[in-house]
Design a protein around this nucleic acid. Structure first.
Lengths: 114, 114
DNA sequence: TTCTTATTTTCCATTACTGTTAATTAACAC
DNA sequence: GTGTTAATTAACAGTAATGGAAAATAAGAA
């Protein structure tokens, strides 16, 4: 039985804790795969800075990386998202309700970035 | 209609991103309410350090604080947990399945800290 | 008032993080 | 080979985070 628990949740949270990295993750959640260059566009920070942010996300296990010609394509690692979800839901007594209620909350939530 | 979206997710994640704070939150998820002193016991760091960590969690909206005699009692703020859950679940295409499947994952997950 | 307990704030040192520019690696086009 | 594009690594500066010791605040007991 393989171990899915290889990533440390605090590291994942720390990775998501930076606003730039959070935005990068949100981009990747919308588009299934993106090159580092495209991912970094529009942030007003240099390519090296983006590269290092992506490295942090990669080390935390949040994204995967693969080479396509000279580009590096990044994608969300579903395992990590699942682990975050699992952690949150494992304490759902504190959510004062069921997952169904969470669904409702999600439904009437407004989007910030469309 | 009051606004529940007062807390910024990156700040919440950043707060959870420190291993000490993450452990403090897990303690609070197990015990509904704890005094700062009890919360900090066993971490090998000073009371002032714990106090500051709790302040970070409080500023991020993750915990509430109330006074009981000379003690300060901390508790999880369910709103914050709900928002984290909502964010994660709002991207559930990446979870390659339904919430039901997440439930299954949760069920066969082993505990690290009992 | 003085003493004790619980917690926070102030001050200071050290470490870690983020960003920049410049240099480097890598893959492709010519 | 030279030149171009894409991305990372190196070197460095500025800022923020973390921790400790000591002082300060607050509540309660004697």
């Amino acid at each position: 039985m393989e171990n899915k628990n290889t990533l440390r949740l605090p590291d994942v949270f720390a990775a998501l804790g930076d606003p730039v990295r959070f935005a990068l993750v949100e981009r990747l959640l919308a588009e299934p795969e993106m090159a580092a260059g495209d991912l970094g566009a529009g942030f007003g920070i240099s390519a090296p800075a983006i590269s290092r942010h992506l490295a942090v996300l990669h080390r935390a296990g949040l994204v995967t990386r693969r080479a396509d010609r000279q580009r590096r394509l990044y994608a969300i690692a579903p395992e990590a998202m699942r682990q975050v979800a699992a952690w949150t839901l494992s304490h759902r007594e504190f959510l004062q309700g069921s997952v169904a209620r969470l669904d409702a909350l999600m439904a009437h939530e407004e989007r910030d970035d469309d």
